[in-house]
Design a protein around this nucleic acid. Structure first.
Lengths: 222, 222
DNA sequence: AACGACATACCGACTGGTTAGTCTGCCGGG
DNA sequence: CCCGGCAGACTAACCAGTCGGTATGTCGTT
């Protein structure tokens, strides 16, 4: 008798493919052709989840905002849960890819860390809705999907931590603080961005990013 | 019709008084006398909100966990909303009071800031459930109560920021980064604690607090 | 070129279940 | 005897997901 649902078992439930990775902001459909239905649904869900939260947003609201009906939503997504999961996935894939590129550059470790620390701030601010949903609504995911997201997130943190440890080994950074704690310190402030950053503020995303990266690097001075 | 409710209008809706400010952890009822109903309700709500989130916790679950019925809950609280608001209030009042004491001590500003930065970490970890609810569920509050909470939070941040600005004026701290950004940086990591700190970890709350305070102070070195 | 067979994309009424909050009334102590 | 403190049935919503149905498109065959 109703073990608190949990969508179906098999597969991710998403029945469509992304042609190529795009920027989240525009879905690659800046022209006059209306965006395809799956993207419209994701965009509507993202906005509504960020505004009202996951639980307080009904599927009906989402499909109305996207200009379709429930039939369309459940044609492309297995459940409301899947929408959330896909929103996470987009942001995670984007940030992971960017970090991979930055971490492998030919440059002193302090430059690579500074670039990575600033980049995650900029991409977070540029996708503030996704970030807000991420840290506010992750616990609404089914246990299984939560595990998956956490695993991806861990990979990301580990990559970041490796940079710090490299600097600590080579003596460029102080090793007074364990590297994983430094990572959590930085990402804490990143996740928190959606609570205080507002576009109207006097600082551009890049300026905020530079400041936060600077704080991190200064904290790590030997 | 139905402007999305919003509890009643008048008053805070809470119909009971706290005898004296206690520690949140035990409600001052460690003995064998059962705790009074309002406290039992708050304790049950705190645990359940932290475990399952606000929206996914029914008032039926709360009253069952507290060993009473809905009649009791709505006798003491105006709405489910009020429970959340009261949980915030407890933590905010506690931290504000501690900060006030620390900030007014006779000591160099770097010592006062270090003590304040570490203290908020310790009290956050010691009330991790409340903290998690705070940063995860604040947006579930009615607009009016949200404004009130934000105002109290702002007061707290301003007091903290004043310490940083004092140090920057007197040249003890670097002023490379605007003080309010430094505050958000630090409190970002504090709010984030509930996402990663687990009691089983190898670091005690005090050790974590010392590390995080150290990172802040190191970042502020001139 | 016309046709049938099958698939994709979507519609929208409906179901079974859940929920916050109300209300009437009981009960025991002052 | 009266009132605070509480019980618990009840109401009026609301909502995720289902399902049968329709329109449009494609492809192989004749």
């Amino acid at each position: 008798m109703a073990t608190r649902a949990g969508s179906e078992g098999r597969g991710s439930g998403v029945r469509w493919d992304i042609p190529g990775m795009m920027s989240l902001q525009d879905d690659g459909w800046g022209g006059d052709t209306p965006a395809p239905v799956p993207q419209r649904l994701l965009a509507a869900a993202t906005r509504l989840f960020a505004e009202q939260g996951y639980d307080r947003t009904s599927v009906q609201e989402i499909v109305e905002a996207a200009g379709v009906t429930k039939g369309a939503l459940y044609h492309y997504f297995g459940s409301k849960d899947d929408l959330l999961h896909e929103i996470y996935g987009r942001l995670l894939r984007l940030q992971q890819k960017r970090l991979d590129v930055l971490a492998e550059r030919e440059a002193p470790v302090e430059e690579r860390l500074r670039a990575a620390a600033a980049d995650v701030v900029v991409t977070t601010i540029e996708n503030l809705d996704d970030a807000m949903i991420f840290f506010r609504s992750m616990h609404h995911l089914s246990a299984e999907k939560q595990k998956q997201v956490r695993a991806e997130r861990r990979r990301y943190h580990e990559r970041f931590r490796a940079l710090i440890e490299e600097g600590q080994r080579t003596g460029v950074f102080s090793d007074a603080t364990p590297a994983d704690l430094v990572v959590d310190y930085h990402f804490g402030s990143v996740h928190h961005l959606s609570s205080w950053y507002s576009a109207d503020g006097r600082l551009t995303p890049q300026q905020v990013a530079d400041h936060l990266a600077d704080l991190l690097l200064r904290a790590l001075r030997p």
